[in-house]
Design a protein around this nucleic acid. Structure first.
Length: 190
DNA sequence: CCCTGATTCGC
DNA sequence: GCGAATCAGG
């Protein structure tokens, strides 16, 4: 793939909209986020306002930075910065979403009531639940999907456990059914 | 671990 | 000009 006018245009547009390099790369296809970033720089449209990272407001780049020469190559990597700041997470005592603790056999009332969720999203969830890690409450971490599956009062209860969609408590698929846009949720039918 | 953008440098 | 590898940070 090469940087055709069209592709560059899309790149500019998306970058302007604040899309991440990886998203842009995904959209364009055939390129990696590195390629996108590289192009962005070459085009000179780098710093998108004062972003959270790479702060360099005024003049502050007189660091020639000779050459760290940080490549011992074949040397074993027995070095670990290890900036462990956060201790282990002791598992959450409460369920992340939806109240539960309902005796088995009872008609589960709310639950992510299907029916008014986009069919596509539901289908996706069904697929995903086949590959789910099926982890237990104690195995939940910041990056595991916390979507509960099954009846908590039964042995047949587990959490999705797939990688979360960064920031969100659920994986891609479950985010889809968990956070429905108001617009899509309201009055589907018709 | 996941992700971000920034830089370098052989091609 | 290009972008993988690397770096630096969240």
């Amino acid at each position: 793939m090469s940087w055709t006018d069209e592709r560059v245009e899309t790149l500019k547009k998306m970058w302007g909209e604040g899309q991440s390099a990886s998203q842009i790369a995904k959209e364009l296809g055939g390129v990696t986020r590195n390629a996108v970033i590289g192009k962005v720089h070459r085009l000179g449209l780098s710093n998108r306002a004062a972003s959270g990272t790479a702060a360099n407001p005024p003049a502050a780049k007189p660091e020639p930075k000779p050459k760290p020469e940080p490549k011992p190559k074949a040397a074993a990597k027995a070095e670990k910065p290890e900036m462990k700041t956060e201790a282990a997470t002791p598992a959450k005592p409460t369920l992340p979403a939806r109240k539960q603790i309902i005796p088995a056999g009872q008609p589960l009332p709310p639950q992510p009531s299907a029916n008014e969720i986009s069919p596509e999203a539901l289908a996706k969830v069904n697929e995903v639940e086949k590959k789910a890690k099926r982890i237990g409450l104690m195995d939940l971490t910041e990056r595991t999907c916390k979507w509960p599956v099954g009846d908590p009062a039964t042995e047949d209860f587990w959490f999705c456990g797939l990688p979360v969609k960064q920031g969100k408590p659920y994986c891609e698929a479950h985010v889809g059914v968990a956070f429905q846009p108001m617009s899509a949720r309201r009055d589907r039918r018709r």
